[in-house]
Design a binder for these strands. Structure first.
Lengths: 142, 142
DNA sequence: TCAATATTTTAGAAGAATTCTAAAATATAA
DNA sequence: TTATATTTTAGAATTCTTCTAAAATATTGA
């Protein structure tokens, strides 16, 4: 298999992913999917992703970055992790898991669910359901 | 004990709290301390606190609200709870505990630490210390 | 008490992140 | 194709928060 075939295979796969989410595989969308999903789990902000896209030579506006991050999130391809009241982080890992948050670097790191257990959860407030349980272990460098 | 004595006792207590934080007990600070600490645990945003202060007849600017929320936080009288990437919540309960977050109402509710346990925490990333562990149980109404 | 000093408050401007708008560009279906 | 639906975009608008520097208030020590 040539490099070209491998690449077109990857791209075709991403197009598929986008189609399955009921979205059209536009140039911008494919480029973002590549940046987000091509090599493994990522935690990324809109600004950073925008920077990476421009660096990769993809002309894309910040509004489009936001649009797509939200559309991908709605489609279950991304989840938002709330760790900082000033900006939003998006996580490409959809398996149940938790996070270390490096407060000085503003950086997230996964904690696989099997590695951490939450037990003894009290009764839920009357008339509510769990949407998610988020554990953030905030760490600082020493 | 008269109502007046009780009230002045409460106010004196709050002044004390403010002084211990190395802050001057100004009219605005005392009013905020009253709103925050007078009756039990509260979870509040800057906007809401500002509204309550104005309603209570205290002339105070939003900048002062922010200044004081941060000063109280730095002094260990408040803690910030990060649950929403669009605004900041401050919690008057300084005991170790976790939260339910009612996503539809934007409302926080305490989970006492004894009611919930986090176990099996993996090794921390090289060269880091735990700053805090935050568990947010996000719930929605059904 | 009264001045000198230090802290605090404030209005309004500025900043940062995000969302909105409506027109142009692109993708899809027939 | 051509019509229709979706997407992208620049730039304005919005929301929350911080900054600025001047006026007000609190504290200290004679």
């Amino acid at each position: 298999m040539t490099v070209d075939q491998k690449e077109s295979g990857l791209k075709a796969n991403l197009e598929n992913k986008i189609r399955k989410a009921d979205l059209r595989p536009t140039k911008q969308r494919i480029a973002l999917a590549e940046l987000l999903f091509a090599d493994g789990n990522r935690h990324i902000t809109a600004e950073i992703l925008h920077g990476e896209a421009l660096e990769a030579g993809v002309r894309i506006s910040l509004a489009t970055i936001y649009n797509n991050l939200h559309q991908f999130t709605a489609a279950g391809l991304l989840r938002e992790v709330v760790v900082d009241s000033t900006k939003s982080y998006f996580d490409t890992n959809m398996d149940p898991h938790h996070h270390f948050f490096h407060e000085d670097k503003g950086m997230l790191e996964d904690i696989h669910s099997s590695k951490l257990e939450v037990s003894n959860l009290p009764d839920l407030p009357e008339g509510t359901n769990i949407a998610s349980i988020d554990v953030i272990v905030r760490v600082t460098s020493n």
